[in-house]
Structures are given as C-alpha cells and as structure tokens.
C-alpha cells in the first residue's frame, strides 16, 4: 500500500513541555487508523500538527511523499484532507445545506449536488434547510462531518468525532465511519474505548507524547500496558 500521510520524528514543544515527542507513523490509502491515549497523551496536539494548526518544533510531515510540514491548514485541506475538529466548528447563521455548499468546488451546481449527497449520505438530508445554530449537538457533529465529506477528500482526520454524543448517536457514528472508510482513508483521534472497539482495525496508542505501541485492535486491547496508561499507572 502507498503511504498517504507520513510523519518523521514529529515533535511539538510548548516552552518546557514536550506535548508530542518524536512521533513517526504512516497512514496508507484506504486505512482506518485510530489514535488513542488518555487525556494529555498528545493526541490533539498531534492532530493540530497534522492539520497545520500547529507548526511542529521538529520533525517533518509528508503527503504522498511531499513535505507539507510548513503548510497552512487551508493548503493542507486543498491537498485532499478533510478535517473535523473536536468541538463542532460550523457556520451557525447558515442552513446545513448552505454551510456544506461552501466546500470548494468547480461550480455552484456542483457544490449543491455534492452538499446534498453528503447530507443524505450521513442521514441528515431532512435537516438541509434547518439553521445549524438551532440543531442539537449530535446533529451538528453530523453536519460538520458532511462538510468534511462533501469535497470527497482522500483522507479524513477526525478529532473525537463522538464527543458529547449519546450512546445511540455514537453507535450510528461508528457505522458511518466504517461506511466512509470504504471510500476514504480515515484517522480517528479518540479516547472513547467503546467507540474505538467498534471501528478499529489498526490502533496507535499515545502516551506522554510518544507512541507507546501500534498494532491491530485486538492486540492493543489485550496489552496490559494500554490498560495501565488509561488507569494512570507508570509504564516502562
């Protein structure tokens, strides 16, 4: 498989705190990768480095072999990377359809077609003409996901996509992510283990800014070190 996104020795420092410390990993075409770890493990900082929101202190990021470390978020998005933030980041004053229509496209008609298809694909076609600011949290998460999916990116990066969702909504999100993975490579940054169990194939475990282990979901969940880091125990 070809590597879509690769990081080499990625490091992010905030003064004396090293939030991400020499992380190297590769995301392949069509892959569904979960990045897990307890709070403060460096997952979200790593996510912000990948999406250009933070410029790493050291290390490099490659997209299909091209160095994109210095690129801004908009330039990374243009490469074909769909990005969903932890807190839904939406245009509250617009309807769901208007918001999703803002995805980059060749023409107005094409934007509308793609937007409607994305909304229907996520099962929220009926909300197309509702104002986003008036929607419930779970619906807002889905509208944002529609914005991410509409331009049909090669890679989708999701930061805690189920944050604030009910159990039912989380189960539905898991189904959706598996379905989306049939067409897009996906990276999910998450700490909800139930959700990860439902979707995961390959899991990378973060601990104190470093990669603790990277393996199949079954192996990772069976490893006592993973349980220990979630329980806050020291890990060698």
């Amino acid at each position: 498989m070809t590597a879509l996104l690769t990081t080499e020795g990625l490091q992010m420092r905030f003064g004396g705190v090293v939030a991400v410390d020499g992380v190297s990993l590769a995301i392949n075409e069509g892959e569904l990768r979960c990045l897990i770890g307890p709070n403060g493990a460096g997952k979200s900082t790593f996510f912000k480095c990948l999406t250009g929101q933070y410029k790493p202190t050291a290390g490099r990021i490659f997209w299909r072999g091209k160095d994109i470390t210095a690129l801004d978020p908009f330039a990374i998005a243009r490469l074909g990377v769909g990005i969903k933030t932890q807190v839904p980041s939406l245009f509250d004053g617009l309807t769901a359809l208007e918001g999703v229509c803002l995805c980059r496209h060749s023409s107005e008609a094409e934007a509308k077609r793609r937007a409607m298809r994305a909304l229907e694909r996520l099962g929220i076609g009926a909300l197309a003409n509702r104002r986003v600011g008036l929607l419930a949290h779970g619906q807002r998460q889905l509208v944002e996901l529609a914005m991410v999916v509409a331009p049909e990116p090669d890679l989708i990066i999701l930061d805690e996509p189920t944050a604030g969702m009910s159990t039912e909504e989380t189960n539905r999100a898991a189904d959706l992510i598996r379905e989306l993975n049939q067409q897009h490579a996906i990276v999910v940054v998450e700490h909800d283990m139930q959700f990860i169990r439902a979707i995961a194939r390959t899991v990378t475990v973060f601990h104190q800014g470093r990669v603790l282990m990277e393996d199949s979901a079954a192996t990772v969940f069976a490893d006592p070190r993973v349980r220990d880091v979630y329980l806050g125990k020291a890990v060698a």
Binding site: P73, F74, R78, T85, L90, D92, L102, C103, R104
Partner: peptide, 18 residues
C-alpha cells in the same frame, strides 16, 4: 466565503480557503 470567515474562521480555513 468572506462572510463565512467572519462566522467561523477556523472552519473556513479547514475547508481550504485562504
């Protein structure tokens, strides 16, 4: 897009707009 930026700068940027 300019109005969208006013509404949510980060989202506009993540959609690929400078």
């Amino acid at each position: 897009v300019a109005v969208a930026i006013k509404e949510n700068e980060l989202r506009a940027e993540l959609l690929g707009y400078d």
